[in-house]
Design a protein around this nucleic acid. Structure first.
Lengths: 195, 195
DNA sequence: TCAGGGTCTGACCGATCGGTCAGGCATGCT
DNA sequence: AGCATGCCTGACCGATCGGTCAGACCCTGA
């Protein structure tokens, strides 16, 4: 039967999402969330086992998409990996701007928790793919800067439509990433690494 | 008289720098810092008025250089502003990787405090300069992503020499930034949304 | 009518936070 | 000797954190 008389669970989730994006995970207390919802802190902890579980449920969709992207990257190398990584990550960042913004600055601590332990490895693989699996410092630096910058920045463009932001970010990434294939005729680098 | 028998003040500063970069400002307690130094928490608060003062003294050199860069940007427009902003910020980011990493994720809250209130405005001007003072969303997005990404990423390259990191970042920025002059001033923009 | 389960709450807990304070302990000056 | 000063500390404070718990308040089905 329809039980939508009061969707407290959903309201808590929504309030947490709002506040996490503004003040961060650690910077938001269960009290703050309860106050916005208009319930008690105990009610928040009735609907969610603990604060971490609240965050986990909030991030679940984004993490699912991230995992899908990770799967699609397996086996790809060179510019193919770069293009899939670029498109996939930009799309993910745009769609889940808010969720990504939640993690702003709290990655190191959050990744230690079991619920998010695997994200570090996925994002490492994503960075490698965006660098075309190149070992050149320039490629690795560019990939890291782009991933970090997009994660950090996409939360600030709440006023830009998804499609516009996506195309702008995609052209930026394509322009900024070191082309791994086309770089070969350019110049022989000091160390020769073939992929 | 040289009284360098025990430079507790400096030791506290060094320990705070180390811990802030690892666990962040909020994530590091005065107790943690005192433990690493080998003194009591009260000693930390004897040498520094409060936790914020500790952070302020830690960031002072970086903030000074940032202010200098801001001064050098006044009056510059177009590609000249872009180039000065790029060189200045990359140099600053490389020299003060650790200090910048401290602010990771705590910008919104820290900038509310009076000691750091002006940084937001400076970084806004820096972003505008890197965008060549263009109003195009693409230029603004690229500038923001680059600034955020470099800030976020430069702390992770502790193993790369300053000169190498600087040149890599500079080529990345020059490649990624939207050239403002090449698009010639006031183009009728036959197609601005279409791509 | 009553039993029972889902929902919600105030009161409370231990831990930790940043910060205060009175005083101990050297050292150097008069 | 007496005193001042700089450095340091343990004990303590109020506030806040995440989390627990017994019980109140529905609503529904028997």
């Amino acid at each position: 039967m329809v039980r939508a008389v009061s969707d407290t669970h959903g309201e808590i989730l929504a309030a947490a999402a709002r506040q996490f994006t503004v003040t961060g995970y650690r910077g938001t207390s269960l009290q703050d969330i309860a106050r916005e919802v208009g319930c008690s802190k105990a009610t928040v902890l009735y609907h969610f086992a603990n604060k971490e579980a609240l965050l986990a449920e909030l991030m679940a969709p984004a993490i699912g998409v991230l995992r899908d992207l990770d799967d699609r990257l397996t086996g790809l190398t060179g510019s193919a990996a770069q293009e899939v990584a670029a498109q996939g990550f930009v799309d993910l960042a745009v769609r889940f701007r808010r969720e990504i913004a939640v993690l702003r600055g709290e990655f190191p601590e959050l990744l230690c928790q079991p619920a998010f332990a695997h994200i570090q490895q996925i994002s490492d693989r994503l960075r490698d793919a965006l660098a075309g699996h190149s070992e050149r410092p320039g490629a690795r630096i560019a990939a890291l800067v782009l991933l970090a910058g997009i994660s950090e920045a996409c939360g600030e463009f709440a006023d830009i439509a998804d499609d516009d932001l996506r195309s702008a970010l995609l052209t930026l990434v394509r322009r900024a990433v070191e082309p791994v294939d086309a770089a070969l005729p350019q110049q022989p680098t000091t160390e020769d690494k073939d992929s």
